[in-house]
Simulated assay, not measured.
Amino acid sequence: MHADKQMCGLSPESEYVELAVEVFAMLADATRVRIVLALRNAEEMSVNHLADVVDKSPAAVSQHLAKLRLARMVSTRREGTTVFYRLTDEHASELVVDAVKQAEHAVGNAPHHHRTAATSA
């Protein structure tokens, strides 16, 4: 039983704990969180489009995207001289969404995500 928990990486002794901390560190930046939120609802976006969405310069967004790419959270596709970015998988998006939901709990009695769930039920 202990071996099964170790294999899936969810035990406190997991070899992935330090890597998980690195993932959190990568997402510990407001611009990178905004980039992930922007990409979660789009198939892919160019640097200039992302810069407009997150209200930062293309150069700043490009630097953040480079870090996210090194962390394998985003991947690219080139079309001519334009590079398009997309989330590599759903996990970074899920982490960011869960963090935003946790933040909603910290500031309000009835977080938005609970009100939406209650009205759609």
Rank of each mutant, 00 (worst) to 15 (best):
V61C: 09
F84D: 05
A59R: 15
K101E: 09
D98M: 12
A92L: 01
G80C: 01
Q63P: 02
A106L: 14
L70D: 06
T76V: 06
E94Y: 14
H64R: 13
V61I: 15
E94N: 13
T82R: 11
K101A: 10
S93Y: 00
A71V: 14
L95H: 04
V83D: 04
D89S: 07
Q102P: 02
R77V: 00
H105C: 11
V96Y: 01
R78L: 00
G80V: 01
T88V: 11
D89L: 02
A66T: 08
R72P: 03
D98Q: 14
E90P: 03
A103V: 09
L65C: 08
A60Q: 10
S62D: 11
R78A: 02
L68R: 01
S93G: 04
L87N: 05
R77H: 00
E79P: 01
R72M: 08
A71K: 12
A60Y: 12
R77D: 02
A106E: 08
F84P: 01
L87R: 05
V97I: 14
A99S: 06
R69L: 13
A99P: 00
L70A: 08
P58T: 13
L95K: 03
E79I: 04
Q63M: 11
V100Q: 03
S93K: 01
V83Y: 04
Q102H: 07
K101W: 14
D89R: 04
K67I: 13
K67C: 10
E79D: 05
H91F: 12
L87K: 06
A99V: 11
S93L: 03
R69H: 12
A92V: 00
V96Q: 01
T76Q: 02
T76E: 03
L70E: 08
A66L: 05
Q102S: 04
Y85E: 00
A71F: 13
R78T: 01
P58N: 15
A106Y: 13
T88F: 08
R86V: 11
V97G: 06
H91N: 14
G80A: 00
M73V: 11
A106I: 12
V100E: 03
D89A: 07
H105N: 11
T82D: 07
E79Q: 08
K67R: 15
S93W: 00
L70C: 09
L68Q: 02
S57D: 12
P58W: 13
V100S: 04
L65Y: 08
R69V: 13
T81I: 11
E79R: 08
S62P: 05
V100N: 03
E104T: 03
A103L: 08
D89T: 04
A71E: 14
P58I: 14
A60M: 11
A106K: 11
E94A: 15
T81A: 10
K101G: 04
V83W: 05
R86K: 10
D98S: 12
H64C: 09
A103T: 06
H91A: 15
H64V: 10
E79V: 05
P58K: 15
K101M: 14
E104V: 08
G80P: 00
D89H: 06
V74M: 02
Q102Y: 10
V100Y: 07
D89E: 06
T76K: 04
T81F: 13
A60D: 09
V74T: 04
A66Q: 04
E104C: 08
R69C: 12
L87F: 10
V96W: 02
T82G: 07
R72Y: 07
R69K: 15
R78S: 03
E104N: 05
S75V: 07
L95A: 02
L95R: 02
M73S: 09
